[in-house]
Amino acid sequence: MTPFVYARADSLGDTIAAGAAPDSAFLAGGTELLNWLRLGITEPTRIIDISRLDGLDQVEALPGGGLTIGALMHLNDVALHALVVRDYPVLSQAILNAASPQLRNLATIGGNLLQKTRCAYFRAEEQLPCNKRQLGSGCSALHGINDNHAIFGWTEDCVATQPSDPAVALAALDAVIVTAHRSGGRRIPAAEFHLLPDTRPEADNVLQQGELITAIELPAPAPRSAYLKVRERESYEYAIVSAAAVLEMDGQTIRRAALALGSVALRPWRLSAAEEQLAGAEIGDREALSTAIEQSFAQARPLSQNAYKIELAKTAALRAIEKAARMSS
């Protein structure tokens, strides 16, 4: 690691003031940041340890229904919180499928959304041609090994995917990411938080320097929701494809569906066209569900080695819907 100075933050005001200085970075759980420092992915000169900021590590019920989750809550604490387990199983499952028990004791939910791609070229111990490491150096994956890369929303500048599991659940839940910044805070819809590579391939998300995530707000409970993660080993591995489904049902009929796919693009990918067609479908009618899902794949574009992910993603979406329907409300 390149040398840096360190300070522990104890007030929100000081934190966002100090964070605004270029070259400073927040440290929450550290499970991403430390690896970036070791690989030279980022080289901040000032580290602001936000892990002990007060008041950002609780779950609270919102007055009109819904929950607010403090950004510094550890992943395990979010996933195992009684209200999350009961009302937002998709989020609980997504988290428990992420990383490892030890990492989830360190990693925060806010930091999780800020993780960068796991593209092997990007994560290499040497700096390889990669626009996300160094803009203009090219994309090694485009014509290289890309079997686990994007099928949606990629450009020739970058074909990577966003690996966060919780982000997929949050996108399907229409969660809101609440931030604080020296120039005022924002409320950002989860599905719009991450950036596709079309304009600034080096950027991952919409946050500005020094903008702090304080909370994640979940709307009304979604007890009929589920997460499905596909990976070659059973645990402690990133997804090849994942799917989050949130359903409202009348008996066996879907009233409303929200679907998001993970690890298929640089942001969680909402299947809006499919969602529209799913309204009114019978849960037992696999063909109708599949036809609906198909709608959203018109825009899918495979790379040289990952056409299989398209089929896989369709099945994952279907299975996630069926799994969600089995969750009791």
Binding site: R118, R123, A124, E125, E232, R233, Y236, E237, Y238
Partner: peptide, 14 residues
């Protein structure tokens, strides 16, 4: 391609 244990899978307990 990968020289690390998140890019190269070996079996886990599960």
């Amino acid at each position: 391609l990968s020289k690390n244990l998140s890019g190269v899978a070996i079996p886990v307990n599960a």
